[in-house]
């Protein structure tokens, strides 16, 4: 019986120390991201959703600590997945109130990463769980899978380049689940049979929606007016 108790205590100590390690790692990542108070980035956005035919458009992205984020298409209509605010990884680790649990290791784009489960302490948080794939050597988040109460689960995958020292990605791929889109023909006043062939429609049906942003330039810590976030 005593042995069992010792084992349980050791297990608890082991798990809590592991979780503590992960919190430290997340805080290190946060510290790196904290170098950036605000940024303005220019990029090109590609919307890849089976039922949307959209061209690549230029976008401007604005961020200010802790979690103000705005994506504006350069003159035009933008389509973003709900919960698109979290395209920015900074807002994922913006809060101090989380519990970080280690969940092993994984390889993302050929890079070894630590898998960290982030559980927000705030019961009212829209985010239920975030799984982060952290490149420990460079303190970069390579991938994050977030489950929310309102907007389902989405995945953000990041590639880094020139601005890796600030923890800012050159490319962000945002994946999300899409519902099958259908409007009654009486509403669209389309009575001719010009739908996509069934095989193609079937092929596309179960695909995830993707929004890809390639950043071409960042302007960091130059200050941003409130008006850009409106």
């Amino acid at each position: 019986m005593r042995k069992i108790w010792i084992m349980i205590v050791l297990l608890i100590i082991g798990v809590s120390s592991h979780a503590q390690d992960m919190t430290a790692l997340v805080l290190k990542v946060k510290e790196k991201l904290d170098q950036v108070n605000d940024y303005e980035a220019e990029g090109r956005m590609k919307t890849d959703v089976a039922f949307i035919k959209a061209p690549i458009g230029k976008v401007k992205v604005y961020f200010r600590k802790p979690d103000r984020f705005r994506l504006k298409k350069d003159g035009g209509i933008s389509l973003l997945p709900k919960g698109g605010v979290s395209v920015n990884i900074g807002s994922l680790v913006a809060t101090q109130n989380f519990m970080a649990l280690g969940a092993g290791e994984a390889v993302v784009d050929g890079i070894a990463t630590k898998v960290v489960k982030l559980l927000p302490s705030d019961e009212n948080s829209d985010v239920v769980l975030t799984t982060m794939y952290i490149d420990e050597a460079n303190l970069l988040v390579r991938k994050a899978v977030t489950t929310t109460k309102e907007n389902g689960t989405y995945e953000v995958q990041m590639s880094y380049g020139k601005f890796a020292q600030y923890g800012l990605p050159d490319k962000v791929i945002f994946s999300f689940n899409t519902k099958n889109y259908k409007l009654p023909k009486g509403l669209t006043l389309e009575f001719d049979d010009n739908e996509k062939p069934a095989t193609e429609a079937e092929k596309l049906k179960n695909r995830k929606g993707r929004v890809e942003i390639r950043y071409t330039n960042y302007t960091i810590n130059k200050g941003l007016p409130d008006s850009v976030f409106k």
């Binding site: 919307t47 039922f51 949307i52 003159g75 209509i77 409007l183 023909k185 669209t188 996509k196």
Partner: peptide, 19 residues
């Protein structure tokens, strides 16, 4: 004027303003 966001019965078309 702006981009044209066209809702068809089974898909959506987004045309750029200059197109």
């Amino acid at each position: 004027t702006d981009d044209m966001f066209l809702m068809k019965s089974s898909y959506v078309v987004l045309l750029k303003e200059n197109d």
